[in-house]
């Protein structure tokens, strides 16, 4: 049930045709897990909170460092040394006190991943490494939870939406561990842009309108302002979602 305050706070998006009070109610009843409170996780959780997602769980086990502050907009100078999940939660509670913010300072592993995401409406991938993404992908496929993937490097990035049982999963797209170079170069705007697209996807999944980036990957190069879509193909022999997997 939307309150009088909800109707006023979310008035401008409620006016969007195809969303309305029903869409807002769905957001209020939803639970989104944001995996990572870094360059993607900060803007993503900010816009999810503004939009009125009823519960946001933000998971990150790392502490804020000075070199994070060019892009991780929920962490400020005074937060250096504090756990990122806690730092982000404090800001988000001030931004929108009418929703629930649950910070989790645990590292995501193959053992706890399913418990951490159980019952969520969607999981937003804001991780900074391939291994944890692979773990989350597997947990989402097993739990049947939509997984909105985003990744960045420099001024480039990509987004895709994984709907278990319907679209290819991350392991279909990338069956083997890639070579990772750390720390990569990045401007704050690139993870922010990727995060905003992930949030739009998450809102559409929950409220049930629009067309998703399901079965296709959007690639962005902000250096040249080139954008392209690549069709994602489900691998029948995928170890996660195919004949060699659990589902």
């Amino acid at each position: 049930m939307l309150t009088k305050e909800d109707l006023e706070r979310y008035d401008r998006q409620i006016r969007y045709e195809g969303f309305g009070e029903e869409g807002q109610h769905k957001l209020k009843a939803s639970h989104v897990v944001v995996a990572g409170a870094g360059g993607i996780g900060c803007p993503a959780s900010t816009y999810l909170a503004c939009a009125g997602v009823g519960k946001i769980t933000i998971i990150d086990h790392q502490a804020v460092e000075l070199s994070n502050l060019n892009r991780q907009i929920l962490h400020w100078d005074k937060d250096i040394g504090q756990e990122k999940a806690v730092s982000a939660a404090n800001k988000l509670r001030n931004l929108n006190p009418s929703i629930e913010i649950a910070p989790v300072t645990t590292q995501i592993t193959g053992i706890n991943a399913r418990d951490l995401i159980k019952g969520a409406s969607a999981v937003l991938d804001a991780m900074d490494n391939f291994e944890t993404r692979a773990i989350l992908n597997q947990a989402c496929v097993t739990e049947g939870i939509p997984f909105v993937h985003g990744g960045v490097w420099g001024l480039c990035g990509q987004v895709t939406t994984i709907i278990p049982g319907k679209t290819p999963c991350l392991a279909c797209l990338y069956p083997q561990k890639p070579e990772e170079h750390k720390p990569p170069p990045v401007f704050g705007v690139t993870p922010a842009m990727v995060a905003i697209i992930q949030v739009v996807e998450t809102i559409k999944i929950i409220a049930g309108f629009g067309r998703l980036l399901a079965g296709q990957v959007l690639y962005i190069n902000e250096g040249t302002m080139d954008f392209c879509f690549r069709e994602a193909v489900r691998r029948p022999d995928c170890e996660v979602c195919g004949s060699r997997g659990d589902r």
């Binding site: 990572g36 870094g38 804001a126 490494n129 990744g151 480039c156 797209l173 990772e180």
Partner: peptide, 12 residues
Amino acid sequence: VGIGMMHFWGGG
């Protein structure tokens, strides 16, 4: 012709 690769960093 477009050439690209997947990126797995998250600004973390």
